[in-house]
Structures are given as C-alpha cells and as structure tokens.
Design a protein around this nucleic acid. Structure first.
Length: 491
RNA sequence: CGGGGCGUAGCGCAGCCCGGUAGCGCACCUGCUUUGGGAGCAGGGGGUCCCAGGUUCGAAUCCUGGUGCCCCGACCA
C-alpha cells in the first residue's frame, strides 16, 4: 500500500493535504505560500472557470484584463480599502538585477540599487482601484452605463498561514467589476451575482450553500454591503465560498468617477464587485471526498468515466472498450480508456478512486462473454453488472444520479449541522462537540461579535437572506435581537 | 511576530544520545513470471546527510551561528 491517506478522523488537515498531493491536484512550490497547480487540479479549475464564464456571459458580462501592478498611491485612495489590504501586499520596489562576483563560486544576482522605482508598485490583492481609475475615463454619461465587466486573473495576498487551494499567497480567481447609474441597479447586480454563485455551487459543485449578508465587521474593505455564500465542510468548519459586494459610491468618490444623469446633473457612479477563487477547489475536496481519496461531482470531473480492461488489455478487450467509449463520448461524456499494461487492474482501481473519477467500468473476457460490464461508482463504492447494449444510457443516467446524490448527501450533512441555540453554555458546547453552523440571536454590535470570536473562535458567517423575523435575546449580551444569525468556526 | 517540531536518495523515515567508509520502505531502471482490488523473484542506479564556521587523526553524529519547512496562536477569500 504505497499511497495511504491519513483518515479524516485521525487528522483532518493532514487528510486534506494527503488528498491534494495524492490526487495529484497540486504541489508545494519553492515560494512560501504558493503552489504548483498540477494538470488534474487545473483541469478541475478549468471546468469551474468555463461554467462560471458561461454564466457571466449569459447575464450580460464581458471579460477584460487589467494590469497585475497597481501604483501604490491608488491603494490609499479609499480609506477602508487600504486598511483592509495594506497588511498583506507584495510590493515591487526595483526594476533591475545585476550580477556581482568574478568567479563562478562568488557570482550572484543582487537587486541593483540604482534601479529603484520612483513610485512602488503593488502586486494586486484585488483590482478595484486600478479598475475604477480606468472607469473615470470610460464614463461620462448615463449612456455609458452600466459597465458589466469581469476579469480572470491571479492576485497576491501575503498571508501568514497558507493551505493549498484554501488560502494561498497567490491565487487564481475572477473578479467582476460593474458600474451603474443607480444604487438600486447596483444592489440588484450584487444580488444577482450572488445567485449565480449559489447556483454554480449547488448545481456544479454539488455543494449546498447558505446565502447571506456579512456583518459590518466581516464586510469587504470598501464595501457598503457584502453578500456571501457559505458552505459547510465535513469537519464542521464553514467555508466562505464566494462574495458579492455592493460598493455604493465609495470607489467612485475615491477615484472621482461621475456621470451626467438624465436630468443633466453630475452624480457619482454606483459599483459592485464579486469574486470566487481557486479556494472553491478546496471546498470541493472537503465537501465530498473520503478516506479513499478525492470524490468529484460528475460535472466537474475531468474524467467522468474510466474504462479499465481486465486483466491485461488485449485486442478484443481494447476494441470492446473503445466501442463503449465512443458510445459514451457521443453523449458528451468525458471518458478515458486505460490501456496501459504496466499496472495491474487493482492498482488502477485504487488510482482512479484516489483521483476522484465518478464511474469506473471494468471489462474482462468474462464480462464480454456474458455481454455485460462491471459498473463501479465512486460516491457509494458499489458495483453492479450492466448489459453491454444498455451501457451508454445507464452511465449517462448514473452520472446524473451521482451528481444528485452528492448534493443530497452534502445537504443532509449540512442541515444536520445547523443547530439552533438559545443559551451561552449550549453555544460553547455545540461548538466544541458538534461543530457546524449555530443559529443564534445576536445583538447586532461589533463589540459582541468580537467578544464571541475571542472566547470561542467562532465568527458570524452571515445573516441568512431568508432569516425570519423573530424576537429573541442575544446569546452573549442578553440584549434584544430581531433575527438569528449563523455562527461557525471557519476556514 | 510568539510557542513547539523537523531538515539524511524523488517521497516517507532510521542512524545522531555513545564520532570510525550512509541505511530501510516506497518509487525508479533491467529481466523473467504474473494480471477480476494497490503483484512476485532476481539484478541495478541514485546522496554537497539544509548552509557556514569550529572541535577532532576522523563529523550525518559534538559545539556555535545562520537558514528553510511544518504544526499551534495573532491576520485573512
């Protein structure tokens, strides 16, 4: 057994790292906090990206690209924004290196002190500033609005502690940046994109999410309102999976972006921004995977079906395998036929389970003679024999079934881990013993929120959009509250 | 930036206390036999023992100083 994975009960975070490495998703890099995304990991991200990109286009957005480097002065224009990001920015100060030393042993590259930049450049932690600096030139009148723009990019946030996909110093994401002529329209946009994210998370990732609003304390630096989708991982910790911000006129004011409205009056432009990142890959792993490796929902599986000839691939088996593959491909299914004769079937079974292939077809002479195929599903680890002539229809339906099953399973777990709590003792106890979301009353003050965080490490993940009005008293302060909010320890 | 742990073959580790020609498992290469759940046998290749000083006839091992990584905290998508 060469590729053992640490069990989830033994050490959840080691299990996560094992999955990342053994499912060949990513490697560590020589640079602290950065990772190499390997082909299999990147293929998952590509599927996510393509699906999201299609959804953005369908809601009227277009893609563009803004620079990696941002003049330092830009960042300081919006007070809260700087405050939020200043702590974690990478800064470019020079533009040239030179070599010193005469011999091969002593020669080294140093920063040329002569080549100091007059104004330092910030490696973007997010692009609001450079984009709004540009929008000033693009926007004159209400006729120029709205601008519905998205960019796919990498950003850098110099984090203290990192974990592959969940929090890396450099990560890939998309950031939508829209400009509107009214507050209402901008707010609608922010909510619309939250819906897009929620739909994507649930329909593609099979990851149930709760849509909500962030408290002032948890809000994006520079936003008037931050909407989010929150998911629950198998260890009972919450994961913020996507955010959508109503930025008000904050960036328009900071960058002096105004437009003439229909009444011929100058007005500041209203803004939104929204993003999801490669963090979603981490969420995907932690939502479905088990102690045998990665489990992927069919819609995001680079290989949806693998066909393994048993025992050794011979001409007859290869022909039969290829024929099945063709039939599946004709239905738009991503299939791999593993004709490699270096590894034994047992090894291959374990390997494909490790990398999360949803369906495996085992095909041996015995099956051929019986006119059947062995169908194994990754999510339940069950096997059945299916007649050859029905295989394509069967697999097509099975993939849908698996997609649905993963979602239902994750939702059942999530729902079972939302606990309504009305007393402080129960709050602490639930957090320690059960984890998950805790639905409780909160007095609405940042002070109380911080106090709770300090005592328990739990934060307010969101105020659910569908939270019902309900009179109650704050779990900590006993002050009146009008609705419950969701607490959890989070990634 | 605080507290702890670890740097020895691609990966995981032993050896270090008690100094004496660097080892194990997996992976890799060659050959044969195997192939319905991670194959077996035989042969083989691969190392600045994190770096720099020091002690010593001799250092992976002892001493000093660096440095990198991991875990736990403070910060965060």
């Amino acid at each position: 057994m060469a590729k053992e994975i640490t069990s989830r009960t033994e050490d959840y975070s080691q299990w996560y790292l094992d999955i990342v490495h053994k499912a060949r998703l990513a490697d560590n890099s020589p640079v602290r906090g950065c990772m190499v995304i390997k082909p299999h990991g990147f293929a998952i991200w590509e599927l996510m990206r393509d699906a999201l990109d299609g959804m953005f286009k369908a809601t009227g957005h277009v893609n563009a690209y803004f620079p990696l480097f941002i003049p330092k002065s830009f960042l300081s224009k919006e007070a809260k924004h700087v405050e939020g990001f200043a702590q974690e920015c990478a800064v470019v100060t020079h533009y040239r290196l030179k070599t010193v030393g005469d011999t091969a042993e002593t020669r080294q590259v140093v920063v040329d002190p002569e080549a100091k930049l007059e104004e330092e450049l910030i490696v973007r932690p997010t692009s609001e500033t450079i984009i709004w600096n540009t929008y000033r030139d693009w926007i004159q009148s209400y006729r120029d609005l709205p601008i519905l723009l998205n960019q796919w990019a990498n950003v850098v946030r110099w984090e203290m502690r990192t974990r592959p996909f969940l929090r890396t110093a450099e990560f890939l994401w998309q950031e939508g940046h829209t400009a509107h002529s009214s507050a209402n329209e901008a707010m609608e946009e922010a909510r619309k994109m939250l819906e897009v994210y929620a739909t994507f998370a649930e329909e593609y990732m099979a990851m149930p999410v709760i849509k909500g609003v962030k408290t002032e304390n948890e809000r994006f630096a520079g936003a008037d309102e931050t909407f989010c989708i929150e998911a629950l991982m198998q260890d009972g910790k919450a994961l913020q999976a996507g955010t959508s911000h109503f930025l008000g006129q904050n960036f328009a004011k900071a960058f002096d972006v105004t437009f003439l409205n229909k009444e011929n009056q100058q007005e500041y432009v209203w803004a939104t921004s929204w993003g999801v990142s490669t963090r979603l890959v981490g969420g995907l792993i932690m939502t479905h995977s088990d102690d045998d490796g990665l489990v992927l929902p069919p819609k995001l599986a680079p290989i949806q079906v693998v066909i393994v000839p048993i025992p050794k691939p011979g001409p007859e088996l290869e022909a039969a395998s290829e024929k099945i593959a063709q039939a599946l491909r004709a239905r738009g299914i991503r299939v791999k036929v593993d004709n490699d004769d270096q590894n034994r079937p047992g090894f291959k079974f374990a390997e494909y389970e490790m990398i999360g292939v949803p369906v495996r077809l085992g095909l041996g002479m015995r099956d051929l003679e019986a006119g059947q195929v062995e169908v194994a599903r990754r999510d339940t680890k069950t096997k059945e024999n299916v007649p050859l002539e029905k295989i394509d229809q069967h697999v097509f339906e099975l993939l849908e079934e698996i997609q649905k099953n993963l979602f239902e399973r994750a939702r059942a777990y999530r729902d079972a881990h939302i606990t309504r709590v009305d007393h402080w003792d129960a709050f602490e106890q639930t957090l320690e013993e059960k984890g998950g979301f805790i639905s409780a009353h909160w007095d609405g003050t940042t002070e109380t929120e911080k106090e709770i965080k300090e005592r328990t490490k739990a934060t307010i993940r969101c105020i659910p959009l569908d939270a019902e009005e309900e009179e109650g008293v704050c779990i900590l302060s006993g002050k009146p509250s009008r609705r419950r909010v969701l607490f959890a320890r989070a990634y």
